[in-house]
């Protein structure tokens, strides 16, 4: 490359707003409209190569790219946290390609792209959740052939899934699935809620916000309109239950949030902290103090805020 061909430093890269070309956006938008019309049904779509590897959220990124506009504020979380690698990279991607306004506050966001969590703060009407989905087919581990699972969905033939859950109970005394726990949507389709902990399943039921699911590698899009029935599969004598913890969050003292177990030394010491980092920070700023906040602040792990 000769000097005069070198792009100037301030040149904007020559791709479209939000990275995808308009024809791709139209294709994804058509798939999204069919997905909201048939809640829980997986619509095939022509997933594109993105500038990061499949498995890093390309499905969610393509949905966000197809819906985002100048009026939107984007929040991205990875396992509940705003500051992990995947979340930071995706946020930067949209800051760069779509001049997106980004935020960490759940109530300020209009689009929340998420990997594996639903925020603890209640969602509002008008907000859009975008889930990154690794495996959209809830029946895949029971039936590897796509031609067969497609028929099972077509004919609502979900006995195999009930048998799987029953076998769990017969062997272990309880349903052992703790994340990606299958749900039935609008009384018709069995759907994978993406690998959110089953703790988050009840938040999907009759949620006031629109929920969109994108699986880039598996080339599927599905959706839940607001106020849609989402029932976790269970049995009358073994009703669905969410996880619970014996202690509250070590930093903010929350007893109602999903907690991550963190190993803190090589003596077997451990602590439980909120997986939703923004929720935990908000509570600490409000003056809630967990039992281990002083220790964590002293070792520089968190900033201790005074209300």
């Amino acid at each position: 490359m000769t000097i005069h061909q070198m792009p100037a430093d301030d040149t904007k890269p020559a791709y479209n707003y939000a990275y995808l070309d308009e024809q791709t956006k139209r294709m994804i938008r058509r798939a999204l409209l069919k997905a909201v019309a048939v809640p829980g049904y997986q619509v095939p779509f022509g997933s594109r190569e993105m500038p990061l590897a499949r498995g890093w959220g390309t499905g969610g990124i393509q949905i966000t790219a197809a819906i985002i506009g100048p009026a939107d504020t984007l929040k991205v979380i990875d396992q509940g946290a705003d500051d992990t690698t995947n979340a930071v990279s995706i946020r930067k991607f949209f800051e760069r390609t779509a001049d997106a306004r980004t935020c960490e506050a759940t109530d300020e966001a209009t689009i929340i792209q998420t990997r594996h969590r639903i925020p603890e703060a209640p969602l509002k009407p008008g907000q859009v959740m975008v889930y990154q989905v690794p495996m959209p087919e809830p029946l895949r581990r029971l039936e590897p052939r796509e031609a067969e699972t497609r028929k099972m969905h077509a004919w609502a033939e979900y006995g195999l899934m009930q048998v799987k859950l029953y076998e769990d109970i017969a062997r272990y005394g309880e349903i052992t699935k703790t994340y990606d726990y299958p749900v039935k949507v609008n009384g018709r389709y069995v759907m994978a809620p993406s690998p959110i902990p089953k703790f988050d399943n009840p938040k999907m039921h009759m949620s006031p916000s629109l929920q969109l699911f994108g699986a880039g590698r598996e080339k599927r899009i599905y959706a839940l309109p607001p106020y849609t029935s989402v029932r976790s599969l269970d049995f009358e004598d073994h009703p669905f239950r969410i996880q619970s913890w014996k202690q509250p969050c070590g930093l903010c003292g929350a007893a109602d949030s999903y907690l991550d177990e963190v190993v803190i030394d090589d003596q077997g010491g451990r602590m439980f902290v909120c997986s939703d980092s923004h929720y935990c920070e908000t509570r600490r700023a409000e003056g809630h103090r967990g039992a281990m906040l002083g220790d964590a602040a002293a070792s520089g792990l968190v900033e201790e805020t005074t209300p």
Binding site: N16, E22, K25, V36, A37, A66, I67, G69, A223, P225
Partner: peptide
């Protein structure tokens, strides 16, 4: 302005069919 007009129109269509 095809990029932004179609984006705004799509959000209206998405809202119409999801609500």
């Amino acid at each position: 302005d095809p990029v932004f007009q179609s984006q705004a129109a799509f959000r209206a269509l998405l809202a119409a069919l999801s609500e």
